[in-house]
């Protein structure tokens, strides 16, 4: 029996064939890009997404004598009942607040000052960036042992003494320990932020400053009305990154103070480390990690929404 092909069906076939040809041509053209993409996606999947999912799953499990069992919310109950849980959050928030005060404002101020220099800018950039190149542990120990020694031998205490001011115990006493860690952290990390601010500042057209000067604006007014609005995107991005990074502070506490004195520098990540590697309780450490993840996630969403609303206004 002869098969009759209607003109409509033939057109559809041709259209399908053309579409397939287009797809194959496209795929052939992009094969290289897809090849690279597969590698990256696999890396992300294996080293970022898989561990995250695994962490969430294991936070509901319990390992006992080689056997893993479902534990419900037991790990979450254990971590929230830990006497250090709330103290760790308080300490973390204290560090974040202080680090924002110093670590956010200071690099911006330094960048503005360096930007004002016509000469020696490159040298100043290197000088400011030098501490970032030091291995973190070496930088922290250097600061702790030579600058902030609680005895009168410490450099900062000698400076205080020279200025007829009372010496500080720095990291050696609970009230001053966290501010000391903030100073160490700001010193060792601000170089990167300064360079980013400098790049943003150098992208501001000079005419804006000239116009402001003609309008009679002084230095502070020029910063407030020209520099800040022009660098707003960078400022808000770094603010968010800084909050996320400071909430995860660990190295300074681990290396400089061991969580002390009087647990004043036990942070959330330090507590998670203790659970995983000192108390041999990975599952509870993972529960704390998930709580941290949720807190930072909620913060990031709120921040992005507020930022969007601010831009729309």
């Amino acid at each position: 029996m002869a098969v009759v092909i209607s003109p409509g069906r033939a057109e559809t076939r041709i259209a399908v064939r053309r579409a397939r040809g287009r797809f194959l041509r496209e795929a052939r053209r992009n094969a290289q890009a897809h090849g690279f993409l597969i590698g990256s996606v696999l890396c992300f999947a294996l080293f970022t997404w898989y561990p995250m999912i695994r962490e969430i799953v294991e936070s509901f499990q319990r390992l006992h004598y080689g056997r893993t069992t479902f534990a419900g919310l037991r790990n979450y109950r254990q971590i929230t009942a830990d006497p250090f849980f709330w103290q760790a959050w308080r300490n973390t928030l204290q560090f974040t607040g202080l680090a924002l005060l110093f670590g956010f404002a200071l690099p911006f101020a330094v960048a503005v000052v360096i930007n004002e220099f016509r000469h020696a800018q490159a040298y100043l950039r290197v000088l400011v960036y030098l501490p970032v190149m030091l291995p973190p542990v070496a930088g922290i120990l250097l600061f702790r042992n030579y600058f902030m020694d609680p005895t009168n031998a410490g450099l900062l205490n000698q400076l205080l003494h020279a200025a007829h001011l009372p010496a500080s115990q720095w990291w050696g006493a609970a009230p001053s320990a966290m501010p000391s860690l903030v100073i160490i952290s700001t010193w060792s990390n601000m170089g990167g932020a300064v360079l980013i601010y400098l790049a943003a500042l150098q992208g501001i057209p000079g005419e804006l400053y000239e116009a402001a000067e003609i309008d009679g604006a002084g230095l502070l007014k020029r910063i407030w009305h020209v520099t800040v609005p022009q660098t707003r995107t960078i400022l808000s991005l770094l603010l968010m990154l800084q909050i996320v990074a400071t909430m995860q502070m660990f190295t300074e506490s681990f290396v400089a103070t061991g969580g002390g004195p009087e647990s004043s520098t036990v942070t959330v990540v330090y507590l998670a480390y203790n659970y995983a590697f000192q108390f041999s309780n990975f599952n509870t450490a993972e529960a704390l990690g998930v709580i941290m993840f949720i807190v930072l996630g909620v913060f990031s969403v709120l921040y992005v929404r507020l930022e969007r609303r601010g831009n729309e206004a």
């Binding site: 006497p83 250090f84 115990q169 050696g172 006493a173 609970a174 061991g258 969580g259 002390g260 004195p261 009087e262 647990s263 203790n274 000192q278 108390f279 041999s280």
Partner: peptide, 19 residues
């Protein structure tokens, strides 16, 4: 929970030697 007990008692030890 030896290590957890030690972590708690760090507090008392550091308090008497720093405060």
């Amino acid at each position: 929970a030896a290590q957890q007990i030690y972590a708690v008692l760090d507090n008392a030890m550091s308090a008497v030697m720093t405060n």
